[in-house]
């Protein structure tokens, strides 16, 4: 028995590199298998029907555009999150930061943009979205820096606060009275609407910028030092609170822009928070982790998740399978990433 296990160990050890590349693929396949089994057991959806539902998404331009559209509100926050997580700051509040940016930016669009030239309007919208998202992220940063309050809960709680503020505004002061019982705001003016490709280019630019920031600047280095050891960072004079505030301002701001892209690219109007985002801010966390905190890789992981989100919506429209069921698949992917870290370490030891 001992000989068998040592043979197995040697076999695994020599194929270490190959394994570390195929593991994510295997993990995805396993997750997919489990998910499709669940669908079959609950709704009688067999693999054929499942693959069918992808056809539209995969093989039409419209399908690709849809996925890309959904990618944007995942990608922007995810890019910011790679920075936050690198620092070891658990920003679970991307959803709230996203909503607040969406609110502020769309507000500028709906109420101010008419009287302004397009460029100015767009610029103001984005500034509003960024700063509101950033502000929303600053409170947890300050509380952690000054009072050592755990940021997981504070960022999380603010998500719900943001949702209630958002809903209040949309139902109340910004509600469009001519909408016959539908709860929504007046539509965004045409000039403030953006094409999905432009949105994507913008997001990709931000991803590249954050990549450079992380790996080639002094600030990025300090972020990594803080992330690896709070004590050492302190001992060499890096201020945790200053770093946290800068990082969270960026992370929140980027999430805010991501939120704005929902109304300018996708919906063109504000509705209740639950209908604006199926949890993009949370999906962004998954995207960041799948990309192993590499901002450039988040472009790929976000697109993948955007595609999956679209599949989920399709499943609902075509087969009456609830869209949120796709979260099972997403969660398992995240789990795969969590598991792969210690497993990789064990592999290295072989």
């Amino acid at each position: 028995m001992r000989e068998l296990s040592s043979i197995a160990r040697k076999a695994v050890g020599s194929h270490r590199k190959a394994l570390s590349y195929t593991m994510p693929v295997i993990a995805t396949l396993i997750a997919f298998l489990i998910y499709s089994t669940l669908l079959y057991m609950s709704y009688g959806i067999d693999i054929g029907k499942l693959l069918n539902s992808w056809k539209d998404t995969l093989f039409t331009v419209g399908g690709w555009k849809r996925s890309l559209t959904r990618t944007l509100p995942i990608l922007m926050p995810a890019v910011g999150l790679t920075l936050a997580f690198r620092m070891g700051f658990w920003n679970i509040g991307a959803e709230g930061q996203l909503l607040m940016g969406l609110l502020a930016g769309s507000g500028v669009a709906i109420f101010l943009a008419e009287r302004l030239p397009q460029a100015v309007a767009l610029l103001l919208m984005f500034i509003a979205a960024f700063s509101t998202g950033a502000l929303w992220a600053l409170l947890p940063a300050y509380l952690r820096g000054r009072l050592n309050v755990n940021e997981v809960l504070t960022t999380l709680m603010l998500n719900y606060v943001a949702a209630s503020v958002f809903d209040f505004v949309v139902r109340g002061p910004w509600r469009d009275p001519s909408a016959y019982g539908f709860i929504k705001s007046p539509p965004l003016p045409e000039k403030t609407r953006l094409d999905v490709l432009i949105g994507f280019s913008l997001a990709a630019l931000f991803a590249a910028a954050v990549y450079i920031l992380q790996n080639y600047t002094v600030f990025g280095f300090e972020v990594r030092v803080v992330g690896s050891s709070y004590e050492v960072a302190r001992a060499i004079g890096i201020s945790y609170i200053k770093t946290a505030i800068k990082v969270m301002a960026m992370s929140g701001g980027l999430a805010g822009i991501g939120g704005l892209l929902i109304s300018t690219v996708m919906t063109g109007v504000l509705m209740e928070s639950a209908r604006m985002t199926p949890g993009y801010g949370y999906t962004a966390i998954i995207a960041a982790w799948l990309a192993r905190l590499n901002p450039v890789a988040t472009v790929l992981s976000s697109f993948f998740l955007g595609f999956i989100t679209d599949v989920g919506v399709l499943l609902e429209t075509v087969y009456r399978v609830p869209a949120s069921s796709i979260m099972v698949f997403e969660g398992m992917l995240l789990l795969a990433v969590v598991v792969s870290e210690p497993l990789e370490k064990k592999l290295k030891a072989l």
């Binding site: 658990w90 796709i326 099972v328 969660g331 398992m332 870290e341």
Partner: peptide
């Protein structure tokens, strides 16, 4: 011995997904 925070988040996501199914 994986990261407890991310594992818990994954659990939440899976749980909510399962619950809707």
């Amino acid at each position: 011995r994986g990261n407890q925070i991310v594992s818990g988040l994954a659990l939440t996501i899976i749980g909510i997904g399962l619950s809707s199914i």
